[in-house]
Design a protein around this nucleic acid. Sequence first.
DNA 1: AATGAATGAGTTTTCATTCAT
DNA 2: AATGAATGAAAACTCATTCAT
Lengths: 218, 218, 218, 218
Amino acid sequence: MTYNNLLDSMIAEAKRSKKQTEKQQKIIETAIQLFAEKGYANTSTNEIAKQAGVAEGLIFKHYGTKENVLRSVILPFFKSSLPGMAEEVFAEVLPAETTTFEEFLRAFLYNRIQFFSENKQILQVVMKEIIYNESLKKELLPYLANEIRYRFRKAIETFKTKQELKNIPTDDVVNILLSVLGGFIISRFVIVDVDRIHEYEVEQLIQFIMDGIRQNDH
Amino acid sequence: MTYNNLLDSMIAEAKRSKKQTEKQQKIIETAIQLFAEKGYANTSTNEIAKQAGVAEGLIFKHYGTKENVLRSVILPFFKSSLPGMAEEVFAEVLPAETTTFEEFLRAFLYNRIQFFSENKQILQVVMKEIIYNESLKKELLPYLANEIRYRFRKAIETFKTKQELKNIPTDDVVNILLSVLGGFIISRFVIVDVDRIHEYEVEQLIQFIMDGIRQNDH
Amino acid sequence: MTYNNLLDSMIAEAKRSKKQTEKQQKIIETAIQLFAEKGYANTSTNEIAKQAGVAEGLIFKHYGTKENVLRSVILPFFKSSLPGMAEEVFAEVLPAETTTFEEFLRAFLYNRIQFFSENKQILQVVMKEIIYNESLKKELLPYLANEIRYRFRKAIETFKTKQELKNIPTDDVVNILLSVLGGFIISRFVIVDVDRIHEYEVEQLIQFIMDGIRQNDH
Amino acid sequence: MTYNNLLDSMIAEAKRSKKQTEKQQKIIETAIQLFAEKGYANTSTNEIAKQAGVAEGLIFKHYGTKENVLRSVILPFFKSSLPGMAEEVFAEVLPAETTTFEEFLRAFLYNRIQFFSENKQILQVVMKEIIYNESLKKELLPYLANEIRYRFRKAIETFKTKQELKNIPTDDVVNILLSVLGGFIISRFVIVDVDRIHEYEVEQLIQFIMDGIRQNDH
DNA sequence: AATGAATGAGTTTTCATTCAT
DNA sequence: AATGAATGAAAACTCATTCAT
C-alpha cells in the first residue's frame, strides 16, 4: 500500500475500473469468496484465476497487483456500507416525534444485521485485513469510526434532550455503544461465523443495552 | 493442522518441548512478536531465524514445521489463560457472602484486562489465527467458550438466587455477557490495538452492563 | 531473427510498410526513443503503445512482432546512413584537384558528426543491438564495414599517389582509421552520450590523425 | 540499482560474499559467461541455475536479486582491472631514465590487451551494461575515466618535459589517447568480438599514435 | 544442539501475441 | 485501420523444509 490516503486510492481504483467486463466481475467475485474463506495471504492469484475461469495474467492486466484486487474488493463494500451505516436509518426513524431511542436502536440494528448478513464474506475480508494490515487499520478504522460516531452522537443528543437516556456524557455512550454493537456483530459474523442472527438474540441485546442486567429494585 | 484434536496435539507439543534451551525461547519470543505484528502467513521462518539470531534450520530441528511454532506460541497462552478465565476470580471473590455481582464483574474484568494487556501480542496472534484458521476456530473456540460459559453460568445462578439480577434465562445472560465482554476486549486489544484500557472506560462499561442506558423513570 | 539474410528481410520489411499511417509513424518514433533510452529488451510493447497513444494490438497489426519493430527502426537509418557514409563527401570533395587528405578527412568527419548527432538515438539503438544481437552483428557489421572500407580505400589510394600519406599498406591505414574514427564517434555518442561534439575536439582529432603526438625533431 | 554510490555497493556486496561456496562460484562463472554471450536482460535466472547445476532458489539465497548477481560479476573485475589500469605499468616502465614514450605506450598497451583478452567476457558484460544502465554509466564511467586520466596525465607531463611529445595541452592529449585506445580496445573486444589482437596491429596503432599518417615532408 | 548451504515447489508478476468487435 | 480484452508461457522471486557437517 503505497498510497498515502487509502480511501482516495480506493476511489481512484474504482473509477479506473468503471465498465467492468464479465471476466473482471468474475475475478472480484471469486476473490471475495476466496479471501473470505482463506484470507488474503493464503489465496494465490493462480487459485483465483482458475476458479474464476480466466488466465492468471488477466488479473494483473486489470488490477496490476494482487493487493489492488483486495482494494477492488473492499472499496465497493465501503462505498455501499458507509452511507447506509446509519444515515438512512436515521432519516427514516428520527423524524417521527414519537420515536423512542429503543425503536431507533432496533431499526438500526436490524438494518445493519441485514446488510452484513448479505455481505458476510466481504465483511470478513475487511475485518481480517484490517486486523493484519497496519495501513488499512490506520486509515479505514478512524474514517469508519468517525462516520458512525458523528451520526450516533446526533441521535444520542436528541434522545437525551427528550430525557429518554441517562445523563452520561454523549461521547461515552457512543463509545460503549460502538464497542457493544461492533463487538456483537463482529463476534457473530466474523469470529463465530454464523449464518444469521436470530431475532430473539437481537431483542435480548436491545433489552440489555437499554436496561442492563441488574434487578431494578435492588 | 493434521491432528484431529488440536488441543491434544498442543499438549503433546508442550511435552515434547519441555526443557527449552535459550535459543528455543528466543525463537518463540520472536515468533510471538512477528506473528502478532504481521500475522502468521506473512512471517517467514527465515525472518524469525534472523531476528532471533539463530540458524533457520534450528527452528525445524526443534519444532519440525512452521505450524508447530505457531502451536508452541498458542499453547502456553491457553494453558495460562484458561485457568484464570474466571476460576481464580471466582475463588477469590465469591466466598464472601456480601459480594455483589457488580463487584464480581469488576474483579473479573480488571483481572482479565491485566492479563491480556500483559499478553497482548499473543492474544492478537490467537485471535488472528482463529479468524483465519478453520480448524483452530472449530476446536479452540467452542472449548474456550464452554470453559468460560460454564464458570459464568455458576456465577450468574448464584447472583440470580440473591435477586441481584433480572430474571432473564441464565444462558441468555451468559451469551450477552460473553458478546459484550469479548467484543469489548477484542475490539480494544486486537482491532484498535490500544496499549492499555483506562479505568474510566472499565467503570463505564460496568455501569452500562449493570443498568443499561435508559433513564430509569422513563 | 529467423531471416537468413537480415538485410533482405529489412528491405522486405520496408516495402511492406510503405505508406505509413500517422499512428504507425508515432509507434516508430516512440520505439526509437524508448529503445535508445532503455534498450530493446527492456522496453515492452505495452510501454510503446501507451506512450505512442495507440492500442497495443495495433503494433502487432502493423509489424507482426516486436522484433520487426526493431527492424523498422533500424532499416531506414541504414538506408539513409550508408549512402552518406562517404560517397557524397567523396563526390563533393574529391573532384577538386587541390583537395588535401586533411581537407577530405575534415569534410567527412563534420558530415558524419552532423548526421549522427541528428540521429543519436537511432545510432544508440543500432549499436546496442549490434552488441547484443549475434545475427545483427554478423550481418550488419561486415556489410557496414565493407561499404565504408571500399570507399575509404579509394580515397587513401588517391592521396597516397599524391604522396600526401605515409607509405603504409592501404588496408592498414583504413583499419586504423576505422578504429579511430569509429571509436571516437561511438565513445562520444553511445558510451558517454554527449549531446554534441565540439569543433575544437574535432580539429584536435584531425591533427592527431595526421601527425600523431611525437615531437617532430625527436 | 538503489544504492547511491554504486562502487560502494559493489564493495559492500563483495564483503558480504566473502567465503564463496563452490556453487556460489559456479553461479558467478555461469552468469559471466551468459551475460557476456546474450546480455544481462536476455539471460534468465532459470538459465543460469540450470547451466550452473544449482537450484534457482540458491541464486536468490546468495544474491537476493538478479541485479545483485550482475554486481557480483562486475565488482571483482573492477577491483582487479583498476589497479592494473596503469599503475603497475607506470611503475615498471617510467623509472628508467631512458624509457621513451613509445616504449611506455607499448608496455601499457600490451599489458591492457593481455588483461582484457583474458577477461574478454567480463569486459563485454561491463561495457554492455554501462551502455544500457544509466546509473552504472553515471557512476562507473567517470570513476574509471578519472583513474586513468590522472595516471596518464602524469606520464604525459613527464615525457613532455623530456621534449618527446608535441606541445599540445596535456588534457587534450589525454582525451585523444583515451578515445583512441579505448575505441580501439572496445571496438575489437566488444563490438567485433575478436579472440585476440595481433602484434602487427598493435605496432601499427603505436606508429599511428606517435606519428600519424601524413607523409613527413609534405 | 546448532549451523547454513541447498532444494524445489509455489508465488506474484511481466509480456509478446491473438482475436473478437 | 484500430481497439482492448484475453491468453499463456516465462520471468523473478519466496519460502518451508532437508541435510551434511
